[in-house]
Amino acid sequence: MLRLPGFRVASPTTIAEAVAALAEPGARPIAGGTDLLPNLKHRLGAPTVLVQLSRLPLRDVEVRAGALCIGAGAVLADLAEHPLVRAHAPSLARAAGLVAGPTLRNLGTLGGNLHLDTRCRYVNQTPLWREALGGCLKSHGDRCHVVPGGQTCVAALSSDCAPALVALDATLTLHGPAGARTVALADYYCADGTAHTGRAAGELATEIRVPLAPGPRRETYVKWTVRKSIDFPLISIAMRFDLADDAVAAPIVAARVVVGALASTPKLVRKLDALRGQRLDDPATADAIAAQVGAQCKPLPNLPYDADYRRAVLPVHVRRGIAALVAAGENHG
């Protein structure tokens, strides 16, 4: 078997207890465990103590103070079907429902998904494999095999929910030794595949807040993988369009497109201002967005699939995502 390394476990029932347990050097939170445990079985990390979050009261989903508030411990399968999530953040519901396979979604949590370690074909392997490779920046080595000569790890952000939530301007609340703080998710990720979140030592994410849409909106999440289940995203695009009124043909007020599965941060696509006033059902709109995505987003050979291919079809999937929104018409959410 792929045995886990030795560690202790703590099972706090309050956030304060959890923060205290996390203060120990080498402590790590574990929620569903569906990312952490495979990585530990591959000996990527050697925590002294795993702090189980499953007993914390972090599963609630509610609308509060103009935001959809989701506990970090909410389970993906529940989010995918939750009426509030479907009503207020349909692209998140969709993303959550596309993570991994059905049984993993019964374990995986939103907090864990947002903290999913970055992934790379050269590192998510057994110790023997990595030894044969000679290691890399993220694992006992001094080279990057994805960007030869590169000094920064570009392992891929592979969370399905992160791009969707960044596109929705979500914030994240963390509790730590210094108290609680709230950050914009867009500012939370950093360009270093070995440490890609802004989580400080001993911190624990507790809540994700999605501001309610100020007006009519269309949003979607597009994922492409080889198989229709289980696989991590190879193409990952979240799109949000705020509209002048509630018709898919209404003028666009604001657009936000976020692409995942590139390097270690979700990529916010820029230069979309010209879309203001354009209409989603105008093919030129989709073409313009696809062109910007194609120009700004370059999939890397970090994931176990042909990078050139991923580059080639990324714009296609952007157009398809928009076409699906248009086709759904007023029947969205």
Binding site: R121, Y122, Q125, T126, A132, L133, P304
Partner: peptide, 14 residues
């Protein structure tokens, strides 16, 4: 890359 089997798991060998 050292002669490793490229997809030695039921995740990568689909």
């Amino acid at each position: 890359h050292g002669g490793v089997v490229a997809a030695p798991s039921l995740l990568d060998y689909r």
